[in-house]
Structures are given as C-alpha cells and as structure tokens.
Amino acid sequence: MTGGMDQRTAQLETLRNLLKQLDITPEQLLHGTTAASVAVPTFDEYVWQVAEAVSPGTRRVYGSYWQRICQHWGTRRITEPTPLEIKRLAEEIRRDVVVRRNARGGRTAAEHLIAAMRCIYRHAVMDGLIRQADNPAARVAKPRRLASTRRALTETQLAAISNIATTTGNDPHLDGLLIRLHMETACRRGGALALRRRDLDPDNCLVYLREKGGTSRWQPVSPTLTRHLLTHHAERGDGDQNAPLLRYRDGRALTYRRYDYLWRRVGTHLPWVVAQQVSTHWLRHTTLTWVERAFSYAVARAYAGHSGKNDVGTTMTYVRAEVQEVAAALAALTGEPHPLASDPSRQDHPPRAQFAAD
C-alpha cells in the first residue's frame, strides 16, 4: 500500500514539473485558456497594431525596422521566427547600413532591430499570443554599446558656433534662441519642440519640459531667455496657449528639419563641426559637464532630467573626464605645455551662447 502511494506521489510531482515547464496552470487546463488556443497573427497583421499602441517617439525610432521585418517575414506568424533567425536578420541589417563619417559598424542598426523585435513580442506576451518563456527576441543579445564620441565643447568652440548661428542663415534670431535654449536647459530636441506658451512661468523663470520616456520637469531658465521666449511667442504665435511655442517667421511650427539646416550651415563655416559630427546633443553634454564639475553629480543628474534608477549610469556619459582635462594632467605631469590644455573645458564660468543682434 505504501509503495502505491509513493508511486502516485512521484507521478503527481512529475506532472507538476511538466506543467511548470510548459508555464500552464491547472486552472488553464480546466478552463481551456492556454496560449495555444489563441489565434496567432502574422507580422503584417500584428506589427501595425503595435505601432498604433506606442508613443510617437517609439514609432519614429522603430518604424523603419518594423517595415524591414514585414518585408522579410510579413506573411509568417509571429511565433515562427527563431532566435537564430532574428540574429541573422540583425546582422543583415548591420551589413547593409549606410556608411557615414560617424558610423560605428552598424551596431546601432542591429541594436534597434532587436529592440523593435522585443517591442513586438512584449505586446504579444501582453495579448496572450505567446508566453514570455517562448519569446525569441528576449534570447538575442544586443550588440555591446561603444562609448559615445560626444564631448563637452570648449568656450571658444561654443562661441564660434553661436556666432555662426546668430550672424548667418535665413533666421538668425530663431537659431540664436535655439542655441541659448539648449545651452541653458540641456534639453533634447524633442523637449524644445514640445514647448507650448502655457509651459512658460515668467514669474519664476521656469519652463516645463516634456521629453522622451514620458518624463517631464520644471526647468529653471534665465530672465533673459524667458524674455526672449515671450517675445518670440508674441511676434510669431497665434495667441493659442496650447500651440507649439517655437515657430518660423511665417508662423509654422518648428520641426526637426530646422536643426538639420542649422548644423549643416554651421558646418560649412566650421569644418571641425562636420569632422566631429557635432550636433544639438553636444550642447546638452557641454552644459551637464560644467554643472557636474562646478556643483555636483546630484545637481547634474537633476539638471539632465534623470530621475529613474536606470538613469544613474546614463548621467555618467555626460560627466566623464574630457580630453582637455587629460591634456591638462599630462602638461602638469611633464611640465610641458599642451595645445588642448591651454583651453580646458573646466572654467570658472560656463560656456555661454549669445542671441542674434537686434
């Protein structure tokens, strides 16, 4: 009798382990609610449902990769690709990437492809179309990220950029305002383009920034910048407090294309801007580096709008030591002057951007 009970106990334990491996509960067996009972869509059917469920920023980043996925596997069901197939597709996209001056071997393209696949399967898990244990994209590692080549601009470099922005082009007032806005707030392009008149608090000299990841914050700005933003709205706005703040001369809302035009123009006058692929994000890097050096890491983290636990490492990309500081250390070590050490990025006052002359 005891032997029979032991055998039954062993069989039940085996059954429990099997159900656990299959990620199926006894309740699912009773009610027939296992994932296998759900009709699985094809990539053509499902990808664009996901596209409608994500934020505009996510859609902008992953959109082209979703198109490539549908071109390759549009008629296949989302449960069919294996981790190996996903890795092969990522490598194919990595090889096909357009080689530019700042290209890094297609790493970013491969990373975005895998991230785009993970986004699809994350929603598929939420919809009960696939179990998390069967998620093929989760088992494909992203390429290791290389350290960013961005660095803080020196005061001389920023002055040169600001001078070109405010003395050339078809709208130097607008471009000067953009440079000053990004230098003071260290905001991203999306944060600047999302500004509305209602986001200005003139009494306390604050602007309300909405940036990636749905984050938002009140950011201090100078009285001078506050005054110029209000003047800009008065001259180019339509009176709508909820409409975009930054506008062209004809009243159209600003887009990312203005930034492309601005840096192309600056690059025609300053070859090193083209050579080093300087962009608006370098202004953010410059400000945050100075804030960390002059105040503290905590202040730099708040200035950057980094608030989550995962943002601790992100802040470090902006506050690492720059080549000018290494050069200064070398000059002190050897007792010989170094050309970069003569203009260090660390200063008693921050690099400043100018407005266009009235």
Rank of each mutant, 00 (worst) to 15 (best):
T166P: 05
I86P: 03
R145S: 13
R131A: 14
I114G: 05
G128R: 04
S148P: 09
R151W: 04
R139K: 12
S162R: 03
A133M: 12
G106Q: 12
L158T: 00
R139F: 04
P143N: 02
A133H: 14
R104W: 07
T149Y: 11
T149E: 15
P81G: 03
N163Y: 03
V98N: 15
R151E: 10
T82S: 06
A137S: 14
A115K: 13
Q132M: 09
V140D: 08
R139T: 14
H112K: 09
Q157C: 02
R131E: 15
I114C: 04
A90E: 13
V97C: 13
A116W: 04
V99K: 15
A160Q: 04
A110F: 05
E155N: 08
A141R: 14
S148E: 10
T79R: 00
S148I: 12
I78C: 01
T154Q: 06
R118N: 10
A124G: 03
I114N: 03
A147I: 13
V99Q: 15
A110V: 02
A90W: 10
L113F: 07
P83N: 01
Q157P: 00
M117T: 04
A138I: 12
D171Y: 08
E80A: 08
K142I: 09
A141G: 06
E91H: 15
T75F: 00
L158G: 00
L153G: 01
A103S: 15
